[in-house]
Amino acid sequence: MPRPTAAQLAYGSCTVILSTLAMLLLSQTSSGLGIVMITLSALVLGLLVAMTVPLPKPVRTRAMPVVPVLKERAPGRRETASVAAAATSEHVREPANP
C-alpha cells in the first residue's frame, strides 16, 4: 500500500476536525455515547475523503510503440494511371549500331 501524500493527510485531517465540530454543535449532545459515535463517524468520513483524493499519476518511462504504415495499404491514397505508369517506366538504353 503506498504512503499517503501530504494532500491526503491535510484533506483527511481537516475533514475529521471540521465534521466533528459541526456534528457536535448541530446535535448538541452531551452524552458520552453520542460524542463517541460522532467522533467515529467523523474519522470514517475523514478516511473516505483522504482515500478519494486523486493520487499523482505515474510518469511513463517507456515510449509508445510506433506502428509502421505501409504505403500500399494507406487509406485514402489512390494512384492514377499516369502516376503508376511514370513510377514503373524505366529508361532503356539500346545500342545504336547492332
Rank of each mutant, 00 (worst) to 15 (best):
M1H: 02
M1W: 05
M1L: 06
M1E: 04
R3D: 10
R3I: 15
P4A: 00
P4K: 00
T5D: 13
A7R: 14
Q8F: 11
Q8W: 14
Q8E: 15
L9T: 00
A10T: 08
Y11G: 01
G12R: 02
G12W: 02
S13W: 03
C14R: 06
C14M: 14
V16H: 12
I17G: 07
I17T: 12
I17A: 13
L18I: 08
L18K: 01
S19D: 01
T20K: 01
L21S: 09
L21W: 12
L21C: 14
L21P: 04
L24Q: 04
L25V: 03
L26R: 09
L26V: 12
S27M: 12
Q28M: 00
Q28E: 02
Q28F: 00
T29W: 01
S31M: 10
S31K: 06
S31G: 09
G32A: 04
G32E: 09
G32K: 05
L33C: 01
L33P: 00
G34Q: 04
V36R: 03
I38N: 10
I38W: 04
I38E: 06
T39P: 03
L40T: 07
L40Q: 06
L40C: 09
S41A: 15
S41R: 03
S41G: 10
A42K: 00
A42I: 01
A42H: 02
A42W: 02
V44S: 07
V44L: 15
V44W: 10
V44Q: 03
L45A: 15
G46R: 05
G46C: 08
V49Q: 05
A50M: 04
M51N: 14
M51Q: 13
T52P: 02
T52M: 06
T52F: 07
L55F: 02
P56S: 03
P56K: 04
P56T: 03
K57L: 13
P58G: 00
V59Q: 14
V59P: 11
R60H: 09
R60L: 08
T61Q: 09
R62T: 13
A63L: 15
A63M: 14
A63H: 11
A63E: 13
A63T: 11
A63D: 12
M64Q: 11
M64P: 04
V66W: 05
V67C: 03
V69P: 03
L70Q: 08
L70H: 07
L70V: 10
K71L: 14
K71A: 11
R73I: 09
A74W: 08
P75Q: 05
P75I: 03
R77E: 06
R77G: 02
E79Y: 11
E79H: 07
E79P: 00
T80D: 00
A81H: 12
A81K: 14
A81T: 11
S82F: 11
S82C: 04
V83N: 01
V83F: 04
A84R: 07
A84C: 01
A84Y: 06
A84T: 09
A85N: 08
A85F: 11
A85P: 01
A85D: 07
A85I: 09
A87V: 01
T88M: 10
E90C: 10
E90A: 13
H91I: 14
H91K: 10
V92Y: 09
V92S: 06
V92H: 06
R93D: 05
E94K: 07
E94Q: 08
P95A: 14
P95L: 15
P95R: 15
P95N: 13
P98L: 07
